[in-house]
Design a protein around this nucleic acid. Structure first.
Lengths: 208, 208
DNA sequence: TATGTTATAAATTATATAAATTATAATTTA
DNA sequence: TAAATTATAATTTATATAATTTATAACATA
């Protein structure tokens, strides 16, 4: 169906066509809304027929999802950079949550229609959403394990603690919650919240 | 329009009619869904004309809201009882949040259609929703002030701390979040979360 | 005079049909 | 042979109209 190195009729590889299709789709979604954009418009701008899009995407939903997924992967990578910084793990955890919050809020403010489409995918718990959540879980687990190793926090189960931290900060990263609070400044509150949690985990004897 | 003591044609006071209307409306909403129930059905069962309902409710939305409000007031009262128990404030705060979570979860499981209508009202931040939130804020503030008074926690601003506790527990009481997690057992997680928060607030020097 | 009635206006929802869009099939081409 | 085309089937969305429901008005009554 796609993906080899022979020169196709458009003069572009399937990968390039896909990239261009996503770029054009983003523009159309921003203009018409994610529930109103048309494949015909995208095909027209790509100078291919509407049916030819199906050589690159299984269906319209896959194209829409690819846009959100691309953003999520980029976000995952940005956050991963933070996990690798040379700072005390507790500071890193705070910094990591603040950045996570910032990236979501920035998206909802700068790209509201694309955010809405991501939000819909999140509500449906589509596979690429689960993947993203797994990736974040992994990252925070690393940080928590570091913090335990340095003795900055105590916990019997790092996994349970990761769960606890995610639940406690839902208001600041859950797609719907970020949307609801998009115009509020809550960074100070989030910092304080995570700091209090970590403080509470500092000298507790037993966790879970 | 209503509310004096002359005997009306139905033989019932306006208050009694309202009560019965709400009771019947609840049944109709459970059966047809909150977006599908009809005033005509309620009037028929009350043995009055559909137009007569307007002597008791300004419009259909007011009737719907009255149902949610009645439940919220009952919940506020139940929670207020907890705030008055003779227990260490920190325990009370944990108990209070657990009951709040339990009441919401119980409603979504036992009365899903009425819960949906409450959820819609919450998303629109209708006045009675604000009232309910104010009431809960007040209650938690009392508990936090007690905890500060007994030295169980330290904080410069009790109001800020109340905000912090509500934000940290959003996942367990926000209407939409409770709906999303209705089939999960998370009581242990909530208890732990509040305990860690309170522990973190125990020996911090400065809060806010 | 609060609460009720019937009549009816206004608004909403349901339904049928036309139009447009998405998805597939059969075929062509670099 | 991957990636295109055109043709067309399937599905979705838009639109107009009928039916229903909600809300108001004018009036009646205990």
């Amino acid at each position: 169906m796609c993906g080899d190195y022979t020169m196709p009729k458009t003069g572009l590889t399937s990968e390039k066509i896909k990239e261009k299709a996503l770029q054009i789709a983003e523009e159309k979604i921003r203009y018409y809304g994610f529930e109103k954009f048309r494949l015909t418009d995208i095909a027209k701008e790509l100078k291919i027929s509407q049916a030819a899009l199906y050589n690159h995407f299984p269906d319209k939903a896959a194209l829409l999802d690819a846009i959100s997924e691309r953003w999520l992967v980029q976000m995952d990578n940005t956050l991963e950079l933070i996990t690798k910084q040379e700072l005390p793990p507790r500071e890193l955890i705070v910094k990591w949550f603040l950045k996570y919050h910032e990236l979501k809020k920035e998206k909802v403010l700068k790209d509201p229609e694309l955010y809405k489409s991501f939000n819909m995918a999140a509500e449906l718990l589509k596979p690429f959403i689960i993947q993203h959540l797994d990736s974040l879980n992994q990252q925070l687990l690393m940080l928590v394990q570091k913090a335990i190793a340095t003795g900055e926090i105590r916990a019997e189960s790092p996994e349970y603690l990761v769960r606890l931290l995610f639940e406690a900060t839902v208001s600041f990263h859950h797609p719907r919650m970020v949307l609801d609070h998009k115009d509020e400044y809550r960074e100070g509150l989030l910092r304080k919240l995570v700091e209090v949690m970590l403080e509470g985990l500092h000298d507790t004897e037993r966790n879970q």
